[in-house]
Structures are given as structure tokens and as C-alpha cells.
Design a binder for these strands. Sequence first.
RNA 1: AGUCUCGUAGCUCAGAUGGUUAGAGCACUACACUGAUAAUGUAGAGGUCCGUGGUUCAAUUCCACGCGAGACUACCA
Length: 1095
Amino acid sequence: MDNNNLNLYKIYKKIFKYWKKKKILNYNIKNKYKKKFIIYDGPPSINGNPGVHHIFSRIIKDIFYRFYTMNNYKVICKLGWDTHGLPIEIEVEKKLKINKKDIGKKISVKYYNYKCKKFVKKNFKKWIKFTNQIGYFFNKKNYFITYSNKYIESIWWIIKKIYNKNLLYKEYKVLPYSPIAGTPISYQELNLPYTYKKIKDISVYVLFKLIKKKIFKKIKNKIYLLSWTTTIWTLPCNSALLIKGNIYYLLIKIYNIYFKKKINIIISEKSIKNILYNNKYKILKRFLGKKIIGLKYKQLINWFNYTIKKKKKFIIINDNLNLIKEDIGTGIIHIAPNFGKNDFEIGKKNNISEILYKNKNNKLYQIIDKNGKFIKKVPLGLGNKYIKNSYYNNNYKKNKYLIEKIFIKYLIKKKKLFKIKIFKHIYPHCWRTNKPIIYYPIKSWFINLKKIKKRIIKLSKKINWCTTNLIKKKFENWLKNIKNWNISRSRFWGTPLPIWKTKDEKEYLVIGSLKQLNNEINKSIKLGYINNNPLKKKNINLHKHFLDNIILSSKNGKKMFRELDVIDVWFDSGCSTYAQNNYPFNKKKKKLIDNKIYFPSDFISEGIDQTRGWFFTLHIISTIISKYISYKNVLPLGIILDKKGKKMSKSKGNTLNPFKILKKYGPDSIRWYMVYNNFPWKNIKFNIEDIKKIKNKFFNTLYNIYLFFLNYSKIDNFNLKDKYKNQYIDKWILSKLNNLLFKTYNNYKLYNITYLSRDIYNFVIYDLSNWYIRLSRKRFWKKKYDNDKISAYQTLYKCIINVLKISYPISPFFMEYLFIKLSYINKKNKNIILKKFPKYNKKYINNIIENNMLFIRKYCSIILSLRKKKKIKVKQPLQSVNILINNKNKKIFKNINNIKLLKKEVNIKKINFIKYKKLKKYINKEIKLNYKILGPKYKNKIKYIENFFKKIKNKSISKLEKKKYINIKKIKINLNEVFIIYKVIKKNNIMYSKNNTIIILNTKINNILKEEYLVRYFINKIQRLRKKKNYKLIDKINIFLYKKNNIYKILINNKIKICKETLTNNIIINKKIFKKKYFYFNKKKIIFNIKKNNL
RNA sequence: AGUCUCGUAGCUCAGAUGGUUAGAGCACUACACUGAUAAUGUAGAGGUCCGUGGUUCAAUUCCACGCGAGACUACCA
């Protein structure tokens, strides 16, 4: 088989088919389960194609799915999909080319919801394909989808439960609101990543004309209060000005460029610098803010002036919420209670009225509608225009600052403008439409989380975050500042709020099940409010269009209508613990949850952005419903960035098509890459080059190891039952292997998948491939099928099989593929998942051998580097190397195996171990200070000591070594306070010295060594030629040599060795050679050829 | 705007309660090895440890300020 043809995608397909045929796609196929392992799947929203980041969260779960199945757990994991909500609605609106306001007008809600469902179903197919392709298998009988009636019914039950606990309430409040989506945004949604964006706004300083009172009696001219705002569109609704009572304000005379004359303005003392551009001004009066509290002013823009009776308007009030910061603005804040959270609170506290529009029928309206447009009655052509130009889709640039320009023109005309300033700030945006939100007064349903905050936090401490403490702390801190959850959305495609109300909103009815709804409908039919029971129809669909028509009756017999809103999608997914099991209506599952068998989950894992999303909602809902945590372990996953470190997003065009990547590199290498690359919670810079590297290095190497084993074991008819005794190097790799098994098992248990994948990788590349196989190759080549050879086979086989098993959860297809291929050795080995996860065997662990080997490898590397420096090839044998014997290496070199290994690896005939005393012959000494000890002891005298040792001679150093100290004037320096450094003196020697390790290599090459080199060189040439001629491994050959000069004698003298290593029958000296091959050695031409001779 | 984290080789990152010559992997270059062979090994080159100042015998490490990046918080009018 050809190595470069290793196609992981083809292997995936083969194995997938095979699994399908054998019906082991659904993991729970073992007969005996001891325990259960519960995973909850965070349902992804299927508003489009799956992205690369979805690979990540699914494979992480799959890894533990497989791991725990191997450990004989019954793993419970229902895959789910989030099918409701804004993300889907927006995609559908784009497709239908409609706006929110068209729904119910141009097209019916029923049709719209039908389209949404269709859209979801279409994407669902893609998702199943994708899920299967990454090795996370979809089970037709076991999944949940949030639009199903059963799922919705469970949500209703939960809503009712929350209502009964007095945690659900309706309130009129100024909320973050997305006009384009036409729905309020919860604070959880506002806290999703990338919602706060830098924008440029035009801000204005405007002049409110004060109605003068005593305090300004002496001032003749008009007095203005100067206020600054970034939301120019709220000015018509101004009804109060906020100042701070305990700070100083100034009345100043200053030039106004728009009036072209000097005017009198009031401003806080410290904010004066904000409004100056080289203007001079004159202070007329300095006074505390409280002196003007309660004064009135003239309305700034008097387009509308309807206010609520008994409420105040156009008045200066005190800032008791401490909102005024003196370095910003003018110290005077404009308040419009209907637009702004703080404004609303202040208005409420100070009994300030909103400014509203009242029509002929005495109906009241906000002057800005729910679409984010001014109502028709607004003058200056502003009517029906968006209040922010960024709400326009197409002509945004053309209309840039259009609204602001109109306002500014008007303010100049009315002599009410002081200054304009471009203001850069960070502003919240809607997470789906990407448009800025506004703060808008709305009646909404809330869950009172503040009331149960203590329990939420207390329980959250039981959750184990499989990551750094930082993320856990942030989650807990965030819970401390928890806000009540706004769960109603004025949208269409979502779980409908199961709440009915009377027209006067005095009576409410919350429905908690279909059965209850059915009963209520029957009551209503008796009263004649509706004609027939829609629940009796065949295909009922518990969505808005279906329920809105149902009229129920109140206790007092009044008509009740459904609350028109749907529920926040985040609530849907937060209910998944219960709703996926149709809790409490499915009695079997209810038992399992109540008895804490299906609950809480052992493990969940989703993107780190879900900390404020699903992780949060899941926790909240289980806190309310079960009074317990809903997950024990959570592994948050980093964001997938492109290779430049930027977030992947459709708008930037840097997303990758996961299907294409899967096809090119196969799921296994991607899975391995994602786990291996970095800790899961750190952001991944997704780089295809790195996947290639993983494929080339890890998978190719593993495959090569397999091929190597395959080739030779077949030639030798290796049998697993063959008896053997382990050799030195086998003991080493088995010790390494068992340590690896030990570590890996524990790391899976602790969810440390990055560590364990790196351990496996290092074992395969550095220990198994680069060391064990390289050193053992000759054992496989030799003819005799003896203990040494059997031991090598047995060991290598053990290593491969175990590596396959422990790597299987991460890269299942490839591992299974090799496992099946190797089943000719052991016919019981068919499918990894049916096997038990291997555990380590203590008796194989031998730390002494491992340490020895580490040491030898280090010495090899040092000696090879010395050879390199002298440009002596490894093939050239060398006579000797001198190694300083010290406490560390004494024991190691007592073992002959280690000496043999080292000699073989660096191709040196003899190793001399020399004692410290005999070093003199080879080296010069120098002294370096141990600053860590000497520094604190002698402080600034250290420079003097440095100088002394710079000039020191060999004799003095020897003295120091003997006496173990030296005196420098009055200072006594001990031997352990310095380091002795060595330098080589002898010719033909090269030395390495660091700490206590000294190696001196003898680089002299005599004739015998040269001859040996020639023989090896010649063998190499023959081997290459064999391969070039495509001879088989077991083919025998004859060598033909052309007799000319005495170099041949050397080769003939080594005939036995050459024949043995190249499977040669005979070396034939000829005067003529057919088709000459030749090479040069010491500038002499050597002519030869080979021929197959399988006699 | 505030709080937190971070800034180390071309890239991805380690690291040290302050102390000898600051480490890995990848990429690069050279060489070697070679019946696992488009694999593999060894070595080399590469760093003002973001900048400035302070503390210290000694600062990449501690402190302060500045610059830059990221996360979180926040309607800062």
C-alpha cells in the first residue's frame, strides 16, 4: 500500500458504511452496563448551515460518549436542535423579502410560521449529514426538536410552575429594544459577545431657556441651561433636567457662534473645559446646584406637549442616583423618561411625566413607534422616518446623519444650539440584526431572578468548570449582578406564551398542559365564546397562529385573550433538560429525572459564549424547577477564529465550509487537531496548514508503524501465542506505554483531552517511532525467528493496539480501520468500542529503565552534535569517547544494555569512563559564580568577587576543589557557591561540558575505521539498488563486482557481513559487468551490479 | 469609560517566589540516515523577553507610567 495515498476521508466513508451495516452507529450496543453517563446536548440554532465551530462542540461530546461507552457506561445523550426564534425568522424574512410589519398583513402568521418550519426542516437535513460526518451519530429514534408540540407543552408546564411560584410578572418598563427585529432584547442577549460596538454619533449641546426666579434677579438677559446629548431624537420628549445639588455651577457669559452674540449659560464649574474652543467667557455667578433645583424652564422642542396629569414637567431635579460625572458633558443631563433606563427610573422617582401624542380619540401614543420610526405627526419631514439612519438597509450612506442634520437645522433656526461634537462611543447592538438597539417603554413578562439570586449562586458553586478558575469566577460574579429575565418577545415563530388575560388585564390564566387547555376550551365553548374545540383537529400545531384564535373564560366568566407574545428562544433551550423528555407528561422519563438518574447531566460542553446563554438558562431553570444543578461538569469551548485571529463571521467572509474541509482531510485529523492544538476553552486559530501537519505527522507515522508491523509479521507468520521473554528495550517501551495508559485514563476522567492527546502524540512520534522502531529495526530484519524477534513483535503489537484504543475516542474512524486490519492477529479484535478501555498494568512500569533511556537519549544527542561539529558522518565509526563518571550516570552505565545502546546509536567502538582526577589531561578550568547564593550574601561586593575570578588560574581552582573553599581577602567563598566550567585542550578531541556532564569525543579516524565505513557504505548502495529494482524483501541476489583496484579486497574480506545484510548468495568478481552501476569512495570508482537469484 | 488578562524567535506558545548561556513545536537552512522512504534523525540560524522610568548587587520577571491586543462591565447624558 502506498503511504501518500492515506486518505482519511475514504477511510471514514468505509468505516461509516461498515458501522451502519453492523448497526454499531448508535453507541449503546454493549450488553452489560454498570452505570449511566448523562450528556446534555446544547441544541444549536439551525438558522443556516453548520459552521466550523459546531464541529468542535459536537466532537467534544462524542469523545466522552465513546470513552464512557468503552468503560461500560450506558451513555445517555439526546441530540437536539433549537428551531425557534429571531435567527430563523430573520433568515425567512430575507427569503420572503418582507419586514416584520408585513407579517399578519401581506402574509398571514400561519403562512409565515409554515415557512419558518419548512426552512428549519430543510436545514435539519444538512445538519444530520454534518453530524454524521464528524463522527457524531444521529439516531432517528432519539432526538429532540424545539418546535414539537411535546416540547412546547413541557415549556408551558415550566412557565406555569414559575408563575405558581410567584416568579412570573408583567411590568411596564423601558427595555433594550431592537426596532428592526421588533422585539425587546434581554440583558442576557445584550451580554452575548460582540454586541457592543464602537460607533460615531453626532452629539449636540443645546440651550434650555430658564424661567427666571429670585436668584437671578440682577441678570438682565435670558439665561440658558446648557445640556449635552448623543441621542438627538429624544429631545422632543425632554421633560426634566438633572443637576447635582452639592456641586458648583457657574453662570457665564460666552460667545455663541450660531447666534453671533454673547449669551448667558449655566454649566457646572468643572465641565467648562468641555465646551471651550478658545472662547473667552466671563463668570457672572457661582452657586451650588441645589439653589436652582425645582426651577422651571421652557420646553425645548414643543411639537408635542401632552403630559400625564398630576405629574411634573420641564423642571430641574436633583440627581439622587449619582449619574452625573463631572468630567463629561455639562453637569446638566437631559431627561426623557420614555427613552432611557435611567431616565425612566428618575422619572418614576421624581414623578416626572412622559411627553406623549394624543389623537382625536384621546388615545395616547409614543412619538416613536415600535419600528423605530417617528410617528406621522412629527413635523419637518421627520414623520415615518427611522430615528437612526443605520436602520436603513440600502441608502444608509446617502442618508448618513440625515436625522441629526434636520434637528440641527431646526435648533439653529430656533436659536437653541450651542455646539456640535462628533462623539465616538461603544453602543449595544442587537445580536441578530446587528443594528443598534434603543431603550423603549414596553410591557413585558419577566422572571424574577433577583428573588432567587441566593439559591442560584449557592447552587452554581456545585458546578465543576473543567477549565481555569477565571471563567468560573466570572460566571459567579455575573450571577451576583443578575437581572430579572425578560422572556417575552413580540415575534411570531416561537413557543407561544401560554397566558390568557381579560381585556382589563385584571385576571390572568396560565396554561400548563394540553389537558388543561382542553378543559378551559370546553368551558369556553359552553359559554359560547368559541364554537368548536380546535384541539380535536388532526394536526394541531401549538404555535401563535393556532392559539391566538382561542378565547377562554375567566373565573368571573369574562372573555380571555391570549398574550400575543412568544417566549425568548433562550428559554426554550434552557428547558431542554425537562422538555427533551417531555417532562412531566412522559411518566417513565419523569421517574428517571425525579430519581436523579437522567438528571443532572454529568457533562455539558458548548461555546464559551453560551456562558451567558445556555449554561445560564439551564442553570436558572433547574434551580427553579428541581432546586438543583442541572450539570455537574461543564467544559466551555473557545471561539473559532480564522488563522489571523479574527472571529469567523459571514459578514467578514472568513468562514470555512466544514463539508469541504471534512472531505479534504477527513474527520479524524480535524478532530485530533481541535483537541491537540490548544486547550478547549482557549480560542482556536483555525489553520488548515496545521491540520495538514497533524495528518502528515501523526496519522502518517501511525500508519507507517502499522505498515512496518504488517510487512514483517506476515513474512514471519507471527502468532500472538508465540512465547517470549522481553528484551531491555521492550521493557522500556512497555513501561512507557503503561505510564501512558495510566495518564490517559485519568485525563479522560478529568476532561483534560488536550494533555492526553499530546501525550499520545509524543508517545507515537518520539518513543515508538523515532526510538523504539528505529532501534529495533534490525531485530525484525534478521532471519532467525527467535525470542528476540518474537518479543519485538509482541511488544510492537501491544503498543499499536493500545494506542489505537486510547486514541479511538478522539479519532474513531482511522483507529477502527487499523484495528480491523490488524484483526488477522487476533480474531476477537473487531470493534474498538466493544473493547474495554485499557488500563495500565503496574508490573510493566519500570521507572529506572525509563530514566536510563532518557539519559542515553540525551547522551546520544550530545555525541551526535559533537560529530556534527567536526563533520563526521554517523556512518563513520569512531574509536572512542570519554565520559566523566559522576553520581548520576554511575548507576546507569553499570547496566551493559545502556552502554550497548549508546555505542550502537552513535557508532562508537569504545566508551571510556574517566574519573574526575584524570580530567586534567584534557581540559582547562574556569569559574563562574552562583549568583543565587552569592548575590544576597555579598550584595554590592559581588562585582569585586567577579573580577577576582576572572583572573584566577588553574592551580588556584584545583586548590579550591581540594579545600572546598577559597579566601579572597576577608571573603570566604565555598566550592558550592561557584560553578566550574571546562574547556578542552587536546588535539583530535572535542568536548561537551555542562553542569556535571563532560563528554570528550576522540575524532581520530584510522584505517580500520575507514574500512568499516566503506563496507557500510557499500551495503547501503546495494540496498538502494535492490529497492530501485523493485526486488521483494525476501528476494535473494548475487552481487557482481568489477575487479580493478585493491578497494575490492576490503569488500571481499567483509563478504559474510555484506551477504547477511543484503540477502546475498554470493559476491562474484567479474572482468566484465553488464549495465554498470558505480559510486565513488575516496575518489576511487567502484563498479558493481546485482541480480536476483532465488535459488 | 471602568475592571481584568495579556504583550517572549517568522508563526503558535512555555517559563521563572528576580540570579549561570531565556525554552519547546512548526516553518526555514544545512547535513545525515534510509527496505516504515514524498517517512525519519541531527544540527544551525532567530530574541532589545512592547517602550520609558523606578526599586535592587542583579529586572524579561516586582512597581509606576505609556503604547498595543483581548475579555468582561456599562444606556455613562
